[in-house]
Design a binder for these strands. Structure first.
Length: 339
DNA sequence: GTAACATCCCGCCATA
DNA sequence: AATATGGCGGGATGTT
C-alpha cells in the first residue's frame, strides 16, 4: 500500500524482447510525479527501478533495438509495487518455467502487482491470478482465456483490480497505467498535472511521436475545450473509416471549420487533420500486427481512401511499407486470433 | 517519379 | 477595450 511520507519503491519489470516505449513512458510518469512533489518542498514519493527478467533486446516501436538487457535472475530490488510490462517477450515467456517461478516468488513478496497489456500472460502463468478477474490487450483476450481457463478475463474492461493484482488493457502503452497509479496514490489533481507536463515532454522529441495520440488528448482534460473535444476524439478513434475532414468534424461539434481547427489545435496540441492522420496510422499499425486482415482491408477500415495512400503515409511517417511493417512485427510462433 | 488535384492550416482582418 | 468567432487567401502538405 502507498503510504504518504514513505518512499514507495516501484519496480518496472520488462521481459525482453520488449518495446522500450512501454518502459520509458511509465518511468517518465513517476519521474514527473516526483518532480511535482519536490517542487512543493516535499520528499519525492517514488523510487523507480527498471529491471529485466530475462536477457534480450529492448526495442523501439519501429523495431530498432535500443539496448540489450542482461537479465536479472539473481537479486531483485525490494518493491512496493511491481509492474509487469507487456510485449512479445511477455507473451513468449509463459513457456519459460524458470522465469515464471522467479516471477511467482517476486509477486508473493510484493504488496501491489500490476500488469500492463500482455504483461498479464506471465502473471497468469504463475497461477496467482487463478480465479481472479483480469484485463489484457483486446487482441489477446481470447488467447489468455484459452490458455488460462482459471482466469476470469474481462474483455471490455480497461483497468481491473482484484485484490493486490491490477491489470490494464493498455491499448495505449503503460503511460495510462502509471498515471492511474499516481492518481491512486497521490490524487487526481497531481495525476492530471503530471499528464499535462507529460504532453510537453511528449511533444519535445518532435517528429513522429510513438505515444498514444489518444493520451495527448486525455492529458489536456481540465481545459475548457477538452470537455467539448473529449467525446469527439473518442468518436474519431472509433470511426476512423468515416469522413473525418475538418469540415465534417466541425459540423459535428457545431463550429465553423476555421474556428474548429483553431480551438482544436489549442486544446489538443495538433491540428485536426494531423491528429486524424496519426490516429489512422496508429490504428492500422495495430491492425497489421494483431490481425490477419489483408493490407487493403486494413487501409479501408482505418480510413485510408486507397491502399496506396496508406503505403505513402507509412513510408512518410514510419519509413517502412505496411507489408514490411507487418512482416517485421508479426509475432513468431504465436497463434493468430481470428477476428 | 511526376502531375494534377484536394485538403489543411495559418496569418490577416472584419465582425460580434 | 478586449476577446472570441468566421471568412478569405494561398502556400504547404497530402491524396489520387
Amino acid at each position: 500500500m502507498f503510504t504518504p511520507g514513505h518512499r514507495h519503491r516501484v519496480v518496472l519489470l520488462a521481459i525482453p524482447p520488449a518495446q522500450a516505449i512501454d518502459i520509458v513512458g511509465p518511468l517518465e510518469v513517476f519521474a514527473q510525479a516526483n518532480a511535482q512533489i519536490t517542487a512543493r518542498g516535499q520528499e519525492p514519493p517514488y523510487e523507480t527501478t527498471l529491471a529485466a527478467l530475462a536477457a534480450g533486446p529492448l526495442e523501439t516501436s519501429s523495431g530498432v533495438p535500443m539496448l540489450a538487457s542482461h537479465g536479472l535472475f539473481g537479486r531483485m530490488p525490494k518493491a512496493d509495487t511491481l509492474i509487469v510490462s507487456g510485449g512479445r517477450g511477455a507473451r513468449l515467456s509463459v513457456a519459460d518455467e524458470r522465469l515464471v517461478a522467479r516471477l511467482r516468488t517476486l509477486c508473493r513478496q510484493v504488496p501491489r502487482v500490476v500488469s500492463i497489456c500482455t504483461g498479464a500472460f506471465p502473471l497468469a502463468a504463475t497461477g496467482l491470478l487463478d480465479g481472479r478477474r483480469v484485463a489484457t490487450h483486446w487482441a489477446h483476450c481470447a488467447d489468455l482465456a484459452a490458455r488460462f481457463p482459471a482466469l476470469e478475463v474481462d474483455a471490455d474492461a480497461i483497468f481491473v483490480s482484484d485484490g493486490k493484482f491490477h491489470s490494464s488493457a493498455g491499448v495505449t502503452a503503460g503511460i495510462d497505467l502509471a498515471l492511474a497509479l499516481v492518481e491512486q496514490d497521490l490524487g487526481r489533481d497531481l495525476a492530471l498535472s503530471v499528464a499535462r507536463h507529460l504532453v510537453v515532454f511528449l511533444k519535445r522529441p518532435g517528429g513522429q511521436s510513438q505515444f498514444s495520440t489518444h493520451l495527448m488528448m486525455g492529458a489536456e482534460a481540465g481545459t475548457h475545450d477538452a470537455d467539448r473535444f473529449n467525446s469527439l476524439t473518442a468518436w474519431i478513434a472509433a470511426n476512423l473509416a468515416e469522413d473525418l475532414s475538418v469540415e465534417a468534424l466541425a459540423h459535428r461539434v457545431a463550429m465553423s471549420p476555421r474556428n474548429f481547427a483553431r480551438r482544436f489545435r489549442a486544446a489538443i496540441g495538433t491540428g485536426p487533420g494531423d491528429y486524424v492522420r496519426r490516429l489512422r496510422i496508429e490504428a492500422s499499425r495495430r491492425m497489421l500486427t494483431d490481425s490477419d486482415l489483408p493490407v487493403g482491408a486494413v487501409a479501408a477500415r482505418c480510413g485510408f481512401g486507397t491502399p496506396e495512400t496508406m503505403r505513402l503515409a507509412f513510408q512518410r511517417h514510419l519509413r517502412v511499407s505496411p507489408q514490411e511493417f507487418r512482416e517485421r512485427f508479426r509475432l513468431p510462433s504465436m497463434p493468430q486470433l481470428a477476428s
